[in-house]
Simulated assay, not measured.
Amino acid sequence: MHWSDHADAIAPALPAVWLVRTGEKPRDLTERSALRRGTARRILARQLGCRDSEVAIGHDPAGRPFIALPDAPGLHLSLATRAGIVAIGLARHPLGVDIEAVEAEAPPPLDLLHPQERELLDRAAPAARPLAFARLWAAKEAYVKALGTGFARAPESFSVFLSSDGRFCVADPLRRAEASGEIRLIEDGGRNVLAAAAIVLA
């Protein structure tokens, strides 16, 4: 997985993820969507060798984004936004990206986790739980985006295992193929710590 933090960077190979600090503070879902799509069009234009105005992003019936223009057969797209940071994933197989903020004050919704994930949080020191939950949830959401289901797939129906090297793997009783991805921690101008996750399903 190639990671970049600049919207004008061209990935030398795919899969690739761009984590772009926009400096924007979208106030609602409409502004977040506009920021996400505008940043994605800029990145895709550089990657595909065309003008921003020549890029169009569509969504399938389940809400998954795709490159509508220009013609880009075999390329898969995933988008996410949080706290003014936009994540764009591009790959030759289905992929998912997500960003989650570390919420130190809010108790994690343990009932949405697989029992093994709840055990992981129970074993973590209280101060470490918000970060552990953000990493878990980013990985889970990236996975269901790659599946194309979103959370129509119950989040507690599969489990994520985190490793110390920034990777994660998914145990899913509905899929025989092993799935693994990567997690990066980022800061938004020193105000927030966020966890970004990406996974490609070959």
Rank of each mutant, 00 (worst) to 15 (best):
E100W: 01
P109F: 08
A40W: 03
A68F: 08
V102Y: 09
R27H: 01
V200Y: 13
F158P: 12
D122M: 15
L19Y: 06
I99M: 05
R32E: 10
G84K: 04
T81V: 05
T81D: 11
G148Q: 10
V144K: 03
A202E: 15
S159F: 05
L147K: 06
P155E: 02
P12I: 04
L77S: 05
E156P: 02
D122K: 14
L194K: 00
R42D: 08
A134E: 01
L29Y: 03
S180I: 05
H93Y: 11
R129W: 08
E24A: 14
P65E: 00
E100A: 09
L75D: 13
R153W: 07
D165P: 06
E54K: 07
E103D: 13
E117C: 13
A68P: 08
G148F: 13
I43F: 01
A16I: 03
P61A: 07
R51W: 07
K140G: 13
R64F: 04
H6M: 12
A40C: 02
R92E: 15
L136R: 01
T22E: 04
A202I: 14
F158K: 11
L77N: 00
E31K: 00
L131F: 04
A197P: 05
R51S: 10
I67L: 09
A72C: 11
I99T: 04
D165N: 06
E141N: 10
A91E: 02
V17G: 01
W3A: 08
R135F: 01
A40K: 05
E119G: 03
D98F: 02
P126H: 04
L110M: 15
A198Q: 02
L29D: 09
L79M: 00
C169F: 12
E105N: 04
A45L: 08
P65N: 02
R118M: 10
H114A: 15
F133I: 01
P73F: 10
V86I: 02
L44E: 04
A104F: 11
F161Q: 15
I99W: 05
E156I: 03
V193H: 10
G63A: 10
C50N: 07
P12V: 02
K140C: 13
A9T: 00
L14M: 14
I88R: 00
R64T: 00
A177I: 15
G74T: 12
P155R: 11
A132V: 02
A139T: 07
D188P: 00
A127D: 12
G89L: 11
A91T: 07
D52N: 14
A198F: 01
R167A: 12
W18M: 04
A125R: 14
F66S: 07
V193Q: 13
R191L: 12
R36N: 07
E105A: 14
L110Y: 15
A195S: 04
E105G: 03
G38H: 06
F168Y: 06
G150I: 08
L131W: 09
V144Q: 06
H114F: 12
A40Y: 01
T30E: 14
F161E: 13
F66M: 08
R175C: 08
L185Q: 07
L35T: 00
I99K: 05
W3E: 09
A134R: 00
A16F: 05
R36T: 14
A171Y: 11
